[in-house]
Amino acid sequence: MSKNEMIQITYREAVREAIREALQRDERVFLLGEDVGRYGGCFAVSKGLLEEFGPERIVDTPLSESGFTGAGIGAALGGMRPIVEIMTVNFSLLAADQILNNAATFLHMSGGLFNVPLVIRMSTGGGKQLAAQHSHSLEGWYAHIPGIKVLTPATLEDARGMLWSALEDPDPVLIFEHQSLLNMEGQLPADAGAVDIDRARIRRPGSDLSVITYGASLFKALEAAEMLAGEGIEVEVIDLRTLRPLDDATFLTSIASTHRALIVDEGWRSGGISAEICARIMEGAFYELDAPVERICGAEVPMPYAKHLEEAAMPQVEAIVTTAKRMVRSNG
C-alpha cells in the first residue's frame, strides 16, 4: 500500500483492526469477555476474530465479570497480555473489586514486585436509549484511582492507535469506547498505528475560549465551535484523550491564551472529572481567567429511557453554543 493511502473505516472497525494487529504482533495477547467470540461481540467489535484467531485467543466467558476480570489480572501476572472486554461501564461495577482492589493496587502492595500489564475495554456513555443500567459515564470515576490509566479515545485515529500503546504499558489501562461513536465513519491512513496515550490534543485551535472535553462530547464541541466561528467566536477545542494521568499542561497553556474555559463532560457534575479539571484551572491558571470557569455536564439523574429526556440529560451542541457566547461576551 502507498504511504498516503487513506481508507474509509468506522470506529468499530478501527477498534477491531487494533485488536487484530495486537493479536498478530504479540502472541501473549488474547481477548477475553462475554460474547466476544461466537456472538461476535456485544457491539460487533470483535466480529470475525474467533474465526481468524481461534478460541484460545478469543475467549468467551460466562457472565462472571469479577471472575474473568480477575482472571485477566492473574493472566497478566502470569506473563500474558490480556485484553478484557466488559460490555458496558455499568457492568464493570461487578468487577470493581478486581479493578480497584487488585489491578490498581498490586504493584504498590507488593512494593514494586508485581506489575499488572492488563487492558480492559468497555463501552460507555448515553445516546442509545439504553436507560439507567447501560448508559452512564463512569470513566471520570475510574480516573479517581491511582494505579490505573484511563483512556477515552474519541477519534478514529485514537480508536485505532491507543490499544497497542495500552498493551505496551506495564500497568493496567482502562479504555472507554463511547457507544454512540461505534458507527462513526471517516478516513484513516491505511498504515495508521500506535499513538501516544498520555497527552491531550487540540482538535481545533481558537483564541476566544477553551472548551475542554473528551469522548463523544468532542464532536458536539467541534460542531458548536463551527457554529460559533460563523458568529466570529473562535473556540479552541481540547480533546483530553486520557483522564488519568490528566494532561493539565495542555489545557492550562490553552487558557493562558484564551482566558476562558468551558468544560463539557457527559459524566455527572458533582465530584466528577469536570470538577477536577476546574480545580486544576483554579490552581494553575486562576490569574489568567477573564471569566468564571463553566461546566456543561450530564444532568444528575440516572439516565432516562425516553429520547427527549435522555437528550436533556446529556450535554448538547446548543447548550455549548449558548454558554460559549455568554462567556465570551461577558466583560472580562
Binding site: 469479577s66 480477575g70 506473563g79
Partner: peptide
C-alpha cells in the same frame, strides 16, 4: 481466587 484462575490460564 480469580487471580489464581488467571495465573493458571497463563
Amino acid at each position: 481466587l480469580p487471580l489464581a484462575v488467571g495465573l493458571a490460564l497463563a
